[in-house]
Simulated scan of single mutants.
Amino acid sequence: MQLTGKITRESLMTLEAYSTWRKQHKAEVIAHRKLRSVALGDHVTLQFEDERTIRYQIQEMLRIEKIFEEDAIGHELETYAPLAPDGSNWKATMLIEYPDVNERQRELARLIGIEDRMFVEVEGQPRVYAIADEDLDRENDQKTSAVHFLRFEFPAATAAAIRAGAGVKLGCDHRNYPAHVAIPAETLACLAGDLR
């Protein structure tokens, strides 16, 4: 899988080529995704996306659905390519996970609006709150969704501080899920590479 800086139709592999590549590289991609994941408390995980994770997601969708028609490939690109960061931000898939169905139903009702209360706090800089679900609204009056897409748009000074090695916390100040965690150094080094 060649990283090109922009995911286009021309930069995707054919289904046959991807099948061969996947057998040899799946473990690497899983390790990369794990490195870019941050657990916030027991029930929220943010998977910070990049070109590699999104490119893999698109190729997997094409493989699973056996998509080879140009229009359908274009649809997958339109759906997933915007989820890759573009130099001034971090983009993440937020997963709210409760194994028990009844508990999940109850908690998703209590967590309405959580996606708007997620933040990144860089040492010496003001908090940057997530811009959530830009593609469509994922909650209603009864509950929030278990999956949200977040963008953390950084002012230049904040991005520079991250690249310079400042400490960074991921947090949530929703009244029913207050939590924060320092982003581990290895993960932070990887995420800093998303900023230019």
Rank of each mutant, 00 (worst) to 15 (best):
L77I: 14
H148P: 12
R117W: 02
T144R: 02
G87D: 13
L62E: 12
R55T: 09
Q57E: 12
Q59S: 11
E115M: 00
G74K: 13
P99S: 03
E65I: 01
G41L: 10
D137P: 05
Y129F: 12
A146E: 07
V122W: 05
D133N: 14
A130R: 01
D71G: 15
R63T: 12
E70H: 15
L35Y: 09
E153Y: 13
L83F: 05
E103M: 13
A132W: 00
D135W: 06
Q142P: 01
L35A: 10
G41C: 12
E76P: 05
H43I: 06
D116G: 06
A72E: 15
P99F: 05
T79N: 11
E134H: 03
Q142A: 07
D100V: 10
F68H: 15
R63F: 13
T79P: 01
R127S: 08
R138Y: 00
R104G: 03
S88N: 09
M61T: 15
I30M: 11
Y98C: 01
E123T: 09
I58H: 13
V120R: 07
I114T: 04
S37F: 01
I114A: 00
Q105I: 06
P99E: 04
E51Y: 03
A39W: 06
F48Q: 13
G87F: 08
N102R: 12
E69N: 13
E115A: 00
T79S: 06
